[in-house]
Design a protein around this nucleic acid. Structure first.
Length: 478
RNA sequence: CGGGAUGUAGCGCAGCUUGGUAGCGUACUUCGUUCGGGACGAAGGGGCCGCAGGUUCAAAUCCUGUCAUCCCGACCA
């Protein structure tokens, strides 16, 4: 359709004010509502349904690799949190403390979990005795609390939902293998299910997780050129095992420390879905996780037989797809715009003219392209259309990311790219944290990751000019 | 936590300069006509103006404080 005019009022155009566009969409599409609790948001049914679909598929993938779900307490005694030095230093500034039970002051205060490494470690120390007990591949779906200074829907809540996987292995090799396996799982999940292309790589020491030996990340790029860390996977080596005394007897009857990993993805990823795919008409949800994959809009529904046929169609399609029918007495035009704004991948129009011809009209959210399909093979047509949309969305996101990825050969070029173009800037780095700090200080860009796919852009660090062997993705981030 | 902005009906806003007890658009309810890209008419319902103090005969309006939200930094998934 050539009709490009803005149908939905009150959504600030992206180009005008991206941040406002983001909040407008979240409010208009009813994903999140602010609550009376500072920094905590109400995730509304439509937003939560996206999370449920993400959970369902991710959980399936975890279990396929042998992971089991567990549930840990939400409180951590202060003494337990203190056990690993780097870990507590990293999280202490942002934990919430419980000091009273009823009217009585607690002998030891409890923190509300900001993450559960310490609890898993304590548990593993209890249950791991022999190499036969390993590996332990646990995951939990829960919420965690971090006392953030500022919050934004999905991107930063004081309490947020996530999954945290925690594994214990006999050897460092095995732990490393699992760390990378989960990173790859996240990356594949993002690309296949969410149509979000990611860059896989390792975090620099400055950016790595508190207590980790190595932190890996998948980084995605939003429509405004800012990066978003979309999932992480850490290898702890035996650092936590030593702090928590997690030992097992190996085949040679020798006491050995376990090697651990942890990995997580949060509701923040929903923010990525919005910012990677959305446009000025509203949300655009990847078919695979869209709560409603197809909405049926009866046209001239007061005419005889229309609603009946539309409902039949709904029944038929519901066996294979997530389908909604809107038979409210709003005008068809209103419904068209509404479901576009809410990101529903396809709309099916069915009216008297269609019924006469035994057809329906399928309209894609991606390009508003209309196709007339016979009711006899509509299931196949819907399936085909959803698949096509999923592919188109990934392609568009890839194109956007590629266009916003550039190479800086020297510092002037680097500064200019970060300031004027944004996006990912690829540049060589000497490995010295001082350069990272200087770059952040002067450009506000941070090192996003040292990608697995390395290129040699030059022999010298873009910042200090000393010899460099690592190519790094830099960018402003959420 | 620093700098800036904004809080008036579900949402978007006007009114504030010059105090006199609240209005517009949209959404909502009912009825009728409509229905293939946000339909039209008529009649209704809804707000002690973020909150708490103060000044005043009188405060949405002036003053102080506080809270929340947004933007830019710092911190972080």
């Amino acid at each position: 359709m050539a009709n490009e005019k803005k149908l939905v009022q009150d959504i600030t155009p992206m180009g005008e004010d991206f941040a406002q566009w983001y909040t407008d969409i979240i409010k208009k599409a009813q994903l999140v509502e602010y609550s009376g609790v500072k920094g905590c948001m109400v995730i509304q049914p439509y937003g939560y349904a996206i999370w449920e679909n993400i959970q369902k598929e991710m959980d399936r993938r975890f279990k396929e690799t042998g992971v089991e779900n567990v549930y840990m307490p939400m409180f951590i005694p202060e003494s337990l949190l203190q056990r690993e030095k780097d870990h507590v230093a990293g999280f202490a500034p942002e934990v919430a403390w419980v000091t009273h039970g009823g009217n009585e002051k607690l002998p030891e205060r409890l923190c509300v979990r900001p993450t559960s490494e310490t609890l898993f470690c304590e548990h593993y120390a209890n249950i791991v005795q022999s190499y036969r007990d390993l590996p332990k591949l646990y995951n939990q779906w829960c919420s965690v609390v971090r006392w953030e200074k500022t919050t934004r829907p999905f991107l930063r809540h004081m309490e947020f939902l996530w999954q945290e996987g925690h594994t214990a292995h006999a050897t460092q090799e095995e732990a490393q293998k699992r760390t990378i396996q989960m990173l790859n799982l996240y990356a594949d999940f993002c690309e296949t299910e969410l149509a979000i292309p990611v860059v896989k790589g390792q975090k620099t020491d400055k950016e790595k997780f508190a207590g980790a030996e190595k932190t890996y990340t998948i980084e995605s790029l939003m429509h405004d050129g800012k990066a978003l860390q979309s999932g992480t996977s850490h290898n702890f080596g035996d650092g936590f095992a030593k702090a928590f005394d997690i030992k097992y007897l190996d085949e040679n009857n020798e006491l050995t420390y376990v090697h651990q990993t942890s990995w997580g993805m949060s509701t923040r990823i929903i923010g990525a879905i919005i910012m990677v795919h959305g446009d000025d008409a509203g949300l655009k949800l990847p078919p695979r996780i869209a709560p409603i994959q197809a909405v049926i809009i009866p046209v001239a529904q007061h005419k005889e037989g229309v609603l009946e046929r539309a409902n039949e169609l709904k029944e038929q399609l519901s066996k294979k797809f997530r389908v909604k029918i809107d038979d409210s007495d709003k005008s068809p035009g209103w419904k068209f715009s509404e479901y576009e704004m809410r990101g529903v991948p396809i709309r099916i129009e069915i009216g008297p003219k269609d019924i006469e011809k035994n057809q329906a009209v399928i309209v894609s959210r991606v390009d508003r392209e209309k196709s007339f399909v016979s009711l006899d093979n509509i299931e196949e047509e819907v399936a085909k259309s959803l698949e096509k949309i999923q592919a188109q969305m990934l392609e568009a996101a890839q194109k956007n990311r590629d266009e916003k990825t550039s190479v800086a050969h020297n510092y002037d070029e680097f500064k200019q790219l970060v300031a004027e173009k944004g996006g990912f800037v690829k540049a060589m780095w000497c490995g010295d944290e001082a350069c990272e700090l200087k770059i952040k200080e002067e450009t506000t860009a941070t090192s996003r990751c040292i990608p697995f796919e390395q290129e040699t852009l030059s022999d010298t660090c873009v910042c200090c000019g000393k010899p460099a062997s690592k190519m790094v993705y830099w960018g402003k981030a959420y």
